[in-house]
């Protein structure tokens, strides 16, 4: 690159990174501010440091209950999705049949449908069978999106396992199912882990289903944070602290699998 081109690159990168980071920095700084500094005019970036917002959120039993709901619902969604996705993804990866393309297309189409199309029927059916405002109900509807996502990711991981190893096991008398559980699954473990993390993140961040299908008992953290936008005005300090608490686990997970994250999160975007 010529110097002028480098200068251009640095200017563009700097402008974008400010746009990217500034709002998050503001959230972080607000989470450590007291009430007076939050509404200071003109605004200040660093106020008198306080942990009061975090203390209030962490001792708010309603919010922490929702936080626990998020943990339980996201974990169960991972279990459900993996139980559905693992055999299907393995089977699709090994399948040599004209049925393969329609099955793959269908997995993508299901995932591409707008979430709102599922909300109304699930709301009405859950109302009938008592699954409104339950963790199980939310796990079920989250799986609508996460199972196809996991299938899609896992197929390419299974594709990467050399078939010869399974062949050898089959020659030694292993059944197809044993080849799947004893050979393919252990070998695809890193892929399975990153698919599981992605499903967890999806479920953790999910908003629309939790908004419409829960009321109080099964509310997740991503919805409960809105409680701090009350009629009496928005409690920005608590929102900022709660926001940081909600995004922290996911950010740590994502950085942990960053090698796979972009490719897998794209779920189908390949060269």
């Amino acid at each position: 690159m010529k110097p002028a081109e480098k200068l251009f690159a640095y200017v563009v990168a700097t402008v974008f990174i400010v746009f990217l980071v500034a709002p998050v920095v503001w959230l972080l700084s607000t989470s450590f501010k007291g009430q007076l500094d939050i509404f200071a005019k003109p605004p200040v970036l660093i106020g008198d440091f306080t942990l009061e917002n975090y203390r209030e959120v962490l001792t708010d039993r309603r919010f922490m209950g929702s936080f626990l709901n998020s943990v339980i619902i996201s974990s169960l969604t991972v279990v459900f999705s993996m139980l559905l996705a693992l055999p299907a993804a393995y089977g699709l990866s090994r399948l040599r049949s004209p049925a393969k393309i329609p099955l793959l297309s269908w997995v993508l189409l299901v995932r591409a449908a707008p979430g709102m199309i599922y909300v109304i029927p699930y709301f009405m059916v859950f109302n009938e069978i008592g699954l409104i405002d339950t963790r199980l109900g939310l796990v079920l509807i989250n799986t609508v999106f996460t199972a196809p996502l996991a299938i899609w990711i896992l197929i390419s991981f299974f594709d990467g396992i050399p078939y010869e190893i399974e062949e050898a096991a089959r020659v030694d008398g292993a059944t197809r199912f044993q080849a799947f559980t004893k050979v393919a699954i252990p070998m695809a473990a890193p892929g399975i882990a990153s698919a599981a993390i992605l499903v967890f993140i999806f479920s953790w961040n999910e908003f629309l289903f939790a908004l419409t299908l829960t009321r109080f008992e099964a509310k997740t953290a991503a919805i409960a944070i809105l409680n701090y936008m009350g009629y009496a005005g928005t409690e920005w300090g608590k929102i900022a602290a709660a926001g940081i608490l909600i995004l922290l686990p996911v950010a740590i997970f994502a950085i942990g699998i960053r090698k796979y994250f972009v490719q897998t999160a794209a779920g189908g975007v390949k060269g």
Partner: peptide, 8 residues
């Protein structure tokens, strides 16, 4: 931004 929940 890809990992922050949309509501947040």
């Amino acid at each position: 931004p890809a990992v922050i929940p949309p509501a947040v």
